[in-house]
Simulated scan of single mutants.
Amino acid sequence: MVTIRQNAFDFSRFTLKNATPDHCDDICKLVNMTYRGKAGWTRETDIISGNRTHIGEITAAMSRPDAQFLVVYRERLLAACIYLAKEQQHAYIGFFSVHPNFQGRGIGKHVLQQAEIIAKQQLQARKIVMFVVSQRHELIAFYQRRGYQRTDRIEEYPLHRGIGTPRVHGLTIEYLEKYIEKLV
Rank of each mutant, 00 (worst) to 15 (best):
H160K: 15
R43M: 08
I82W: 02
E155Q: 08
V31T: 11
T45V: 12
G50C: 03
A115G: 09
Y92W: 11
V98F: 09
P65L: 04
H90N: 13
G106E: 06
P158I: 06
T59R: 13
Y179G: 12
F95P: 00
T59Q: 13
V133T: 10
G162M: 09
A60M: 14
Y83E: 06
I27P: 09
N101E: 15
L159F: 04
G108N: 12
Y179L: 05
S12K: 12
N101V: 01
H110W: 13
F102R: 04
I82K: 03
I118M: 05
G37M: 09
R64G: 00
Q114Y: 03
T172G: 01
A85L: 07
H137E: 13
L30Y: 05
T53S: 12
K127F: 11
K182I: 04
A125V: 07
G170C: 07
G50N: 07
Q124G: 11
R145V: 04
A39D: 15
R136W: 00
A39M: 10
A125T: 06
N51H: 11
E116V: 06
T34D: 02
V31L: 05
R153Q: 13
Y73V: 04
G147S: 04
A39F: 12
R150I: 01
H99Y: 09
L176N: 03
K86W: 04
P21H: 08
I4T: 12
E57Y: 00
